[in-house]
Design a protein around this nucleic acid. Structure first.
Length: 781
RNA sequence: GGGCAGUUAGCUCAGUUGGUCAGAGCUAUCGGUUUACAUCCGAUCGGUCAUAGGUUCGAAUCCUAUACUGCCCACCA
C-alpha cells in the first residue's frame, strides 16, 4: 500500500470516500486479529499468541460483541454499541494489549421465525402447515447466512475492528453442540426439570408464547357479578365480578383482602361454586384491590396468570390448606375436565351457557358493559388462553446466589452504578426460568421420547402426560420406564425428539464462552474484560450470562458491564418503523462519515443515558472532522519531512510550552477517563482542546514564525534566531498534532488513520495508527 | 401498584469523591478574517441549577418531602 493513495487532497474532507479507502486498507491486513504482532508486523500463530499471553497475562483485552439479529442489517442502536466497543478495543490496542473483539450474529428465536415466515416463506405460498421442519430449518439457515454477510459489512463500515474471520452464528453446529452440553450438564446436576405451569397458549398456532410475544387488544365486554353461596349459611353470598364467567368451572377458591371488613365474617369459611356445586375455600391475599370489582376474586389458577401466582403464594404460606388448580380448557379452546355438562363445547359457547344457567338460578346479580384488554397472539391475533402445560425449567435457587455474589461482591461492576440496583432487584425476585418455546427456529431440546407425547386433562382437571399411551408421573419416571432419554443423537428410529426449542436467552446467555470455546482460545481470552450492551437487556441477557457462565466455567464471564443508553429519533421519540422516524445508516454514514456518527454516539454522552439523533450535532461533528483535516493539511504544508527525527534542544517560546503543557495534562486525563468508562465526558475536553487550544490559539500564534515568504513571495524570517524559532514551532506543531491524532484515534479511527498515512513519522513507527502507542508526556525545558 | 432515573441559559445537554461548577454546542446580536477551514475567529445577550425544608464554614452536587417528566416490571378480576 503506497502513500499516494492517502494524499491530503484539496478541498473539504470527503468522509465517505476516504473512509472506504481506509477500510479497504485495514481489511487487507491482519490488524483486527489479536494474533497481530506489532514487533514482527504480521500475525502470530495461535500458538505463538498463546505463548506470549501466557507469559504476559495482563496483555489481553477481550470484548464479545453482542450479536445482533442476523436476519436484518444492524440498526442505529446496534451500531452505537459497536462505537463504544471499538473505542475500548482501539484504546487498549494502542496501550500494547492483544485485543480481541469477537463478532457474532443471533438467530433471534421467535422474532427470527416470524420474519422468515413473512418474508421468505409467505411469498412462496409456504407456511408451517405445508413444509417440514427440516425444510424450514434448512431454508431459514440459508436465508440467515446471506443476511449475515450483509450485516457484517455494516459492522465493518462503522469501523468496528473485530476479528471477522471468527464471526460466529448462534446456530453454528459447534455452538449448538456446546449449548446443548450445558443443558445436559444442568440436567445431570439436577438443575433442570420438566413441570406443569401456566402458559400463554395460542389455540390457533398451537404454541406457548412468551409474554413479549403477545399484544393487548381492547374489546367491548361485559362484567358479570355472580353470587357464590356460603356453605352452611343459605341466606349468605359472596359476590364476585368477572369478565370471563366460563372460567368459573375451574374455580378453586375465592380470594379477599385480609383487611377488608366487608368480608371478615367469611374468613376461613367455604363457598359453594355454583353450577358445579364444588366446595371452595375463601382465602386471603393482600394483593387484592378492595376497590376493584367487588373486592372478592374468583380464583382460577389453571386459566389466569395472576390467579396462578396467588395460588402459589398461598400454598407456600399455607402448606396444610393447599388450593388446587383445575384445568377446564384444553389446547383447542374447548371445555374439558370436571365441567359437567359443559364438556366439549367451545369457550365462547360455554360462556353463554353459564350465564343463562346462572340467571335461571338467580345467582347473576347484574352485568355491566366494560372495555376489556385481552391478550392476543402477536402473529395471528387469536385470543390467548392461559392454560396449564408441561414445560422445561431451570432451577435458579443456586444460580441466583452466583448472580447476586457476582455483583454484590464486586466480581462484576456495572456502569452506570445505579443500574446495579435494577440488576439486584431483578435477581432477588428471580424464579425458576421456563426455557422451552414451541417454535421451529432454534436449538431443539436434546430430549427423546419413545413414541408420541400427549398431554391430556383428566376428569379431575389435572394435566397428565402419556408417552406412547403409557402414563408417566414426571420426566424422571419416563426415563426410568425407558420412555425418555437425554442425548445429542437419536437413540433409535422409534424415538421422537422433543418439539420444543430453547428460549433464545438460554443460548445467548452462554455466548461469552461458547464463542471462545468454538475457536479453542477460551484458555487465552476467557474470562473476558467488558460486556458492552444496551441497558434494556441487563436483566434478560447480562444476568443470564453471569449465571450460566459461572455454572459452566466456574468463572464469571466478564469484570465490567458498560450499559449504553438508547438512541432516540430526532423528535425525542423512540425510533420505530411504524412511527416512520427511523434514519438509514447509509444516509448518516454517507453524509457525516462513520467518524461523525461515532462522535454523535460518544461525545458528551454517559452510560445509561439516552440521547437523540440530532442532525445539528452531526453537522457540528462533520465540521470537526473538516477542522482536523484542514489543520493537518496546514501543518504538513509547514513541516519538513524529517521533523520527526529532530532531537535538538529547541528554542521554545511561551506559546510552544503552553501547548505542550496542555497536552501533558490532557494525555493522562483521557486515558484515565476511558479506563473508568467516562470516555463520553472526556471526549468533550479532547474535542475542545483540539479545536480551541490547538487550532484557534496555537496555530494562529505560530503562523508568523512558520512563514518563510511574505504575501508577495519575498523571503522572510531568515535570521538565525528566526530559523531557530521556526524549528521549535515546527517540532511542537508536529508533536502536538501527532499526540492529538493518537488521542483521537479510538473516537474517530478513519480520519486519524488517513492523516497518519502521510504524517511525518519516526523511522520504525507503526505503519497503521491502530498500533501506534498511546502518547506520553513531553519534557518541556 | 412495584422498581429506576430525570427536572441546570430560548433549544439539546455536560457538571461522580460538596469548595474557580454556574458550563458547552446550537440559536440570536455585533465585529473581524479569507497564504488550513462546504468557512473560520473574537465578543455580547441569557440561568435565585423544579419547589420547600434540612445537614455543613460552604450544596447544582448530600438528606427529607412535594410537584411534574421518562423508562422498566407487574396487573386491571
Amino acid at each position: 500500500m503506497t502513500q499516494e493513495n492517502f494524499e491530503l487532497y484539496r478541498g473539504p474532507y470527503n468522509a465517505d470516500e476516504s473512509e472506504k479507502k481506509i477500510l479497504a486498507y485495514w481489511l487487507a491486513h491482519d490488524f483486527y486479529k489479536p494474533e497481530y504482532n506489532k514487533v514482527t508486523k504480521k500475525a502470530d500463530t495461535v500458538e505463538e499468541m498463546r505463548q506470549y499471553l501466557a507469559e504476559n497475562p495482563d496483555k489481553k483485552f477481550t470484548i464479545i460483541d453482542p450479536p445482533p439479529n442476523a436476519y436484518d442489517r444492524p440498526h442505529i442502536g446496534n451500531i452505537s454499541g459497536y462505537a463504544y466497543q471499538d473505542l475500548l478495543g482501539r484504546f487498549w490496542r494502542m496501550n500494547d494489549k492483544r485485543v480481541l473483539l469477537f463478532p457474532g450474529k443471533d438467530h433471534a428465536g421467535i422474532q427470527g421465525e416470524v420474519v422468515v415466515l413473512n418474508d421468505l416463506f409467505k411469498p412462496q405460498g409456504k407456511n408451517k402447515n405445508n413444509i417440514t421442519r427440516e425444510e424450514f430449518y434448512e431454508q431459514t439457515y440459508q436465508y440467515f447466512t446471506e443476511m449475515m454477510a450483509r450485516a457484517q459489512k455494516d459492522e465493518q463500515r462503522i469501523g468496528l475492528s473485530a476479528d471477522y474471520a471468527r464471526d460466529t452464528f448462534t446456530l453454528d453446529p459447534k455452538i449448538v453442540h456446546n449449548v446443548l452440553q450445558t443443558f445436559i450438564d444442568l440436567y445431570d446436576t439436577g438443575k433442570v426439570y420438566k413441570g406443569v405451569r401456566i402458559v400463554n397458549w395460542c389455540p390457533s398456532c398451537q404454541t406457548a408464547l412468551a409474554d413479549i410475544d403477545t399484544q393487548k387488544k381492547e374489546r367491548e365486554s361485559a362484567m358479570y357479578y355472580i353470587k357464590y353461596p356460603i356453605k352452611g349459611e343459605s341466606d349468605k353470598f359472596i359476590t364476585i365480578a368477572t369478565t370471563r364467567p366460563e372460567t368459573m368451572l375451574g374455580d378453586t377458591a375465592v380470594v379477599v383482602h385480609p383487611n377488608d371488613e366487608r368480608y371478615t365474617e367469611f374468613h376461613g369459611k367455604t363457598a359453594i361454586l355454583p353450577l358445579m356445586d364444588r366446595e371452595i375455600p375463601i382465602i386471603l391475599d393482600p394483593i387484592i384491590e378492595r376497590e376493584t370489582g367487588t373486592g372478592a376474586l374468583k380464583l382460577t389458577p389453571a386459566h389466569a396468570t395472576e390467579d396462578y401466582e396467588i395460588m402459589i403464594r398461598w400454598n407456600q404460606a399455607n402448606p396444610d390448606k393447599k388450593v388446587e388448580n383445575i384445568s377446564v380448557i384444553h389446547k383447542d379452546a374447548k371445555i374439558v375436565g370436571p365441567a359437567g355438562k359443559y364438556v366439549g363445547v367451545t369457550v365462547g359457547e360455554a360462556r353463554e351457557a353459564v350465564i343463562a344457567d346462572l340467571k335461571a338460578l338467580g345467582l347473576l346479580e347484574k352485568e355491566e358493559k366494560t372495555l376489556q384488554r385481552v391478550p392476543v397472539c402477536e402473529r395471528c391475533k387469536s385470543i390467548i388462553q392461559p392454560i396449564m402445560s408441561s414445560q422445561w425449567f431451570i432451577k435458579t435457587d443456586e444460580m441466583k446466589k452466583d448472580g447476586l455474589d457476582a455483583v454484590e461482591n464486586g466480581h462484576v461492576s456495572i456502569h452506570p452504578k445505579y443500574m446495579t440496583k435494577k440488576y439486584l432487584h431483578w435477581m432477588k425476585n428471580l424464579r425458576d426460568w421456563p426455557i422451552s418455546r414451541s417454535l421451529w427456529w432454534g436449538y431443539r431440546f436434546p430430549i427423546w421420547y419413545k413414541g408420541e407425547v400427549e398431554e391430556t386433562i383428566d376428569e379431575n382437571g389435572q394435566i397428565t402426560e402419556q408417552i406412547n399411551g403409557i402414563e408417566i408421573s414426571d420426566f424422571a419416571d419416563a426415563v426410568a420406564k425407558d420412555l425418555a432419554k437425554v442425548s445429542f443423537e437419536s437413540p433409535g428410529t422409534e424415538w421422537k425428539q422433543d418439539e420444543n426449542v430453547f428460549d433464545t436467552w438460554f443460548s445467548s446467555g452462554q455466548w461469552p464462552y461458547v464463542t471462545l470455546q468454538k475457536e479453542e482460545i477460551d484458555d487465552i481470552f476467557y474470562p473476558t474484560n467488558v460486556m458492552e450492551t444496551g441497558y434494556d437487556i441487563l436483566e434478560f441477557w447480562v444476568s443470564r450470562m453471569i449465571m450460566l457462565g459461572k455454572f459452566r466455567t466456574g468463572k464469571y464471564p466478564f469484570t465490567d458491564v458498560y450499559l449504553h443508553g438508547l438512541v432516540k429519533a430526532g423528535d425525542g421519540q423512540k425510533m420505530s418503523k411504524s412511527k416512520k422516524n427511523t434514519v438509514s445508516l447509509d444516509e448518516l454514514v454517507t453524509n457525516y462519515g462513520a467518524d461523525g456518527l461515532r462522535l454523535l454516539y460518544i461525545v458528551g454522552n454517559k452510560a445509561g443515558a439516552s440521547y437523540r439523533l440530532d442532525e445539528e450535532k452531526l453537522k457540528g461533528y462533520r465540521n470537526f472532522l473538516n477542522k482536523l483535516w484542514n489543520a493537518s493539511k496546514f501543518s504538513m504544508m509547514n513541516l519538513p519531512s524529517d521533523v520527526a527525527e529532530w532531537t535538538d534542544n529547541f528554542a521554545f517560546t511561551e506559546d510552544d510550552k503552553a501547548m505542550l503543557e496542555k497536552l501533558n495534562a490532557l494525555i493522562p486525563q483521557v486515558a484515565e477517563k476511558i479506563q473508568k468508562f467516562r470516555f463520553g465526558i472526556v471526549s468533550l475536553d479532547l474535542y475542545d482542546s483540539f479545536w480551541h487550544d490547538f487550532c484557534d490559539v496555537y496555530l494562529e500564534a505560530i503562523k508568523q514564525r512558520l512563514y518563510t515568504k511574505d504575501r508577495e513571495g519575498n523571503p522572510i524570517n531568515t535570521s538565525d534566531e528566526a530559523v531557530a524559532s521556526r524549528k521549535a514551532a515546527q517540532w511542537t506543531l508536529w508533536k502536538a498534532l501527532d499526540t492529538y491524532l493518537r488521542l483521537l484515534h479510538p473516537y474517530i479511527p478513519f480520519i486519524t488513520e488517513y492523516i497518519w498515512q502521510s504524517f511525518p513519522k519516526k523511522s520504525g513507527e507503526s505503519e497503521t495508527i491502530m498500533y501506534a502507542t498511546w502518547p506520553t508526556a513531553v519534557t518541556v525545558k
